[in-house]
Write a protein that binds this DNA or RNA. Structure first.
Length: 275
DNA sequence: GTGCTTGTTGGCCA
DNA sequence: GTGGCCAACAAGCA
């Protein structure tokens, strides 16, 4: 599930539930793969007694800052989610990290364990955080930066290129399809064959889809939606891509599906054509 | 049982 | 060295 806007949704869940609260106890599944490269016991030791001071999102990652210069990084992978549960909640099989605070329990749950926890102690945020590419909605995400990147990945299908986090941080499978559909570019086009006008459309729709997704899913600037099943308008490809016999909301023509760049891809052949 | 899955990584090869 | 492809990771669901 988690792409840019969903990640922001989950960050807010923890933030709104426990900002300023103190961690009383930490539960970890020592052997869980989400802890690869870090020591769960160290996390438990450092965070016990620490206060949640702030948090942020970048690409598909979250960073939670605790008192005592402790930084907790979370990537949700394919099936991860963050929840805030009442104090009486009993953690389940897939709840690999639980921060029991003076208020709710902050739960990181991930059945498939493609997600990942990172941890750092120090006055400044760690390099694994500061090295994340500049956000699509930041001024550094320019048309020329996109054009340069497409030139370097000239022979790869544009769908695969859009999934590369070093240039399109936060874009995942459904967002990539949504962007290409709006920009009217066939997902199998080689990145180097896009004309300047197409590169510009791609750039614009990347920003547009990110902005819309944040408003719709993460409730940017207003209250957090109750859950992820928010109402995404039927004018998006999103609501039609998995429907049997699904049709393009712009043309009314049938949608197509294929594996491109190793991922299931949906597009509208009437709108996105190969030269 | 089979064949999928909104992500990332490392190994192989051109 | 760079770029592109793909299997692997693991669990649940239809």
């Amino acid at each position: 599930m988690p792409e840019l806007a969903e990640v922001e949704f989950f960050r807010r869940r923890w933030q709104q539930a426990a900002a300023g609260k103190t961690v009383r106890k930490v539960l970890v599944h020592e052997r869980a793969r989400i802890f690869r490269g870090v020591e769960p016991a160290k996390i438990a030791r450092q965070l016990t007694g620490a206060k949640l001071e702030g948090s942020s999102t970048a690409a598909k990652q979250m960073l939670f800052r605790f008192s005592g210069d402790a930084w907790l990084g979370i990537h949700l992978g394919m099936s991860g989610e963050l929840r805030a549960e009442p104090a009486a909640y009993t953690p389940g099989k897939h709840d690999h990290l639980v921060l029991m605070t003076s208020g709710p329990q902050l739960v990181f749950s991930d059945p498939r364990m493609f997600g990942r926890v990172q941890f750092h102690v120090g006055p400044k945020p760690p390099t694994w955080w500061t090295d994340i590419a500049p956000a699509i909605l930041s001024p550094k995400f320019t048309v020329s930066a996109v054009a340069d990147f497409l030139r370097r990945r000239a022979r790869a299908p544009i769908k695969a290129v859009l999934l590369m986090q070093e240039r399109f941080p936060g874009i995942g499978n459904w967002m990539a399809d949504e962007v290409l559909w709006r920009a009217a570019i066939h997902p199998r086009r080689a990145a180097g064959t896009l004309k300047p006008a197409e590169v510009r459309r791609l750039w614009r729709e990347c920003r547009h889809v990110c902005r819309l997704a944040l408003v719709t899913i993460a409730g940017q600037g207003r209250k957090l939606p109750p859950d992820l099943n928010v109402h995404i308008p039927d004018s998006w490809l999103f609501n039609h891509r998995w429907q049997p016999g699904g049709r393009c909301p712009k043309t009314g023509q049938p949608l197509a599906h294929a594996t491109i760049g190793g991922r299931t891809t949906c597009w509208s052949p009437a709108r996105q054509k190969l030269p």
